[in-house]
């Protein structure tokens, strides 16, 4: 059990690193899909089977397919330019920032009190009950968010005729 978690975690980390360092967009996307699947495994191991399934179906499926479509629509990407943008210097600042953040949160987690962990299965039935009970307003808000998302995507995605620019 535990070893599975660590392997999945390692895969996620490596794949994610590759996502942000790769110069080929499609390759980067594939790495991201790998990372998402590994993450789904971790969700499963944490007892959230429903979340794991959704992670694969919606994230790994739907959202990534959207990305692929866009990459196709954009046409061949200038790989060389990508390379030229990725100078070592650009990595320094963000890395420092991220390392500090990592350190801070690591400290927080280490300093926090450690209760003996035996995780319980989250009840899937409970998820539905709570979702349509106390969180109903959140569901409504989510639906309200999705509708403008739909309209916005439709509106923004249109190719504007040359003369009207």
């Amino acid at each position: 059990m535990e070893i599975l978690f660590y392997i999945a975690a390692a895969v996620t980390l490596l794949a994610t690193v590759r996502v942000i360092t790769h110069v080929h967009a499609v390759h980067a996307l594939l790495y991201l899909v790998v990372a998402l699947i590994a993450l789904a495994l971790i969700f499963y191991l944490l007892g959230a089977q429903f979340a794991a399934a959704l992670e694969i179906i919606i994230y790994g499926g739907a959202i990534m397919v959207l990305f692929i479509f866009v990459v196709m629509l954009l046409g061949p990407l200038a790989v060389e330019q990508e390379k030229s943008w990725l100078t070592p210097g650009t990595w320094v600042g963000p890395n420092v920032l991220a390392l500090v953040l990592l350190g801070e949160v690591g400290y927080l987690i280490a300093a926090g009190d450690h209760l003996p962990i035996d995780f319980m299965e989250t009840r899937r039935k409970g998820v539905s009950i709570v979702l349509y009970g106390p969180y109903i307003i959140g569901v409504e808000l989510a639906s309200m968010l999705l509708l403008p998302g739909l309209i916005g995507a439709y509106h923004l995605g249109r190719r504007v005729p040359k003369e009207s620019r």
Binding site: P94, L97, L101, E104
Partner: peptide, 16 residues
């Protein structure tokens, strides 16, 4: 984005 990150850093620092 970087400024947002710095802000988060500061807040976390205060929290820590």
């Amino acid at each position: 984005a970087a400024t947002v990150a710095v802000g988060a850093l500061v807040l976390l620092g205060l929290f820590a």
